[in-house]
Design a protein around this nucleic acid. Structure first.
Lengths: 244, 244
DNA sequence: CGTGGTGTTGACCTTTGTCAAGCTGGGTGG
DNA sequence: CCACCCAGCTTGACAAAGGTCAACACCACG
């Protein structure tokens, strides 16, 4: 499941995806591959402990995954969902257990932050710094939601943020296919699955959304959804890559 | 209250404090002062909007302050408390209103992140990147607490983290003098002042802490407090500078 | 076309928030 | 230096949001 290499042997496909992630900063992927790395290939449902002796960085090459903090006993908080091209920071020394888990079959590149920053590639610290600041912004938004928003607000907020990342438009209505389960949504929003389910029910009854199957959601009234979300600005902005 | 300058005229005292903050990375303060900056001098209780057209960075030169997110109507979430030497990141484009407010008379240096990163000082991106990753780690800890911890756990957690930053030892017992009000604590923990007050009461009744006056807390039984905090590791680790 | 994991819905309970009434102690002015 | 005063804190009674437990319904697989 985990393969470690310290120099190339990198398939062209890997280099190509890396280039796509690093292109904005113009960082040559070969430079990154000069550092030691691990490829994490996680099947749907599998997860990997982020051991945390030394900060690490993960590049999401494909799939959908979640960054999870565990609390004794049987509690967990999902810190972020991740998609193709995201950069995930896993600082060492946190006071809880951190894991990365695959929601859909995923492939990630695990690197050591210190080694990466010291690699000599001059644009890399800038690129990572910008990404880290963006991640910090997202993490704070989550803190605000978890600390001060009600269940309906959190669910509306969630739907809007997922729409910004996954939404496709069809005859003027946004359609989104949620890759994560109700449990994942609940663990991300600091709620229970029952509460999430009830909120979906309310939104459905109010004609704000329509659902089909377990995962498809159609946003019928974004205006109202946005009002329910207690956001000051429409939505966090278009997310190109990044996020963590 | 806000003074702007674009080149030195910097008092020696300012340079000296800057050196203390930047020393770990060996960044010469003169280099930073080549960028445009503003000195924010906030009297106790005053606050400043972080307008957010362009990411900014704040260096805490002195005092105690808080980073606050506002939600309509009358809700606020304190994202972090800040002390001498901290670096605070204020990313542009968040979906809520961000402010920095002084808990005690404070002095901060407000800089533009982009300009700073592009300043040419080679160690600056690394330094800021490390700080940003640390801040991200702290922000996630807060998200976990707000999303999945109970009121008693949050209060215990808070006391331990404040002890790690402000605590002084006296005959084997930690004494801490909290600079923030109960309302600040509540707004930081996603609770009400009444709940915070009741939790302090419980801890006092259980003999875990003793209080004296409005702000002095003596930790009588750190073992028990730590158990109540639902942390996996003792505490996040010694914080030297940083944090946001 | 079953079947089991996932999602929904309902009844009830716990935790925390709300409202209101007193208490306290730090700061001010006499 | 002391007394007063008021913001901030504490405590209590009650309400409400969300959690828990349990039964059922629905897909998405085989």
């Amino acid at each position: 499941m985990i393969s470690a290499r310290s120099l190339p042997q990198a398939p062209d496909e890997l280099l190509q995806r890396l280039d796509a992630i690093l292109a904005p900063g113009g960082v040559p992927s070969a430079r990154i591959l000069g550092a030691s790395f691990r490829v994490l290939s996680l099947d749907r449902g599998r997860s990997s402990l982020l051991h945390n002796d030394g900060d690490s960085v993960l590049l999401v090459l494909g799939g959908v995954s979640k960054l999870v903090a565990h609390l004794p006993p049987d509690r967990e908080q999902i810190l972020s969902f991740h998609f193709d091209g995201d950069v995930i920071f896993a600082p060492a020394g946190g006071s809880h257990i951190l894991m990365i888990a695959a929601i859909e079959d995923s492939e990630l590149l695990l690197l050591d932050t210190g080694e990466l920053l010291a690699s000599g590639e001059p644009r890399l610290p800038l690129l990572l710094c910008e990404r880290a600041i963006r991640s910090l912004g997202r993490s704070r938004e989550k803190a605000v939601a978890l600390g001060r928003k009600t269940a309906p607000e959190r669910v509306a907020d969630f739907l809007l943020s997922m729409e910004a990342r996954l939404g496709t438009t069809e005859s003027e209505q946004a359609i989104l296919v949620l890759p994560m389960s109700r449990r994942d949504i609940a663990d991300s929003l600091g709620l229970t699955i029952e509460t999430v389910s009830r909120q979906f029910g309310e939104l459905r009854a109010a004609g704000v959304i329509a659902t089909s199957g377990r995962s498809q959601v159609r946003i019928l009234d974004r205006e109202r959804l946005s009002a329910l979300s207690a956001r000051c600005r429409p939505h966090p902005r278009e997310y190109l890559p990044d996020l963590s």
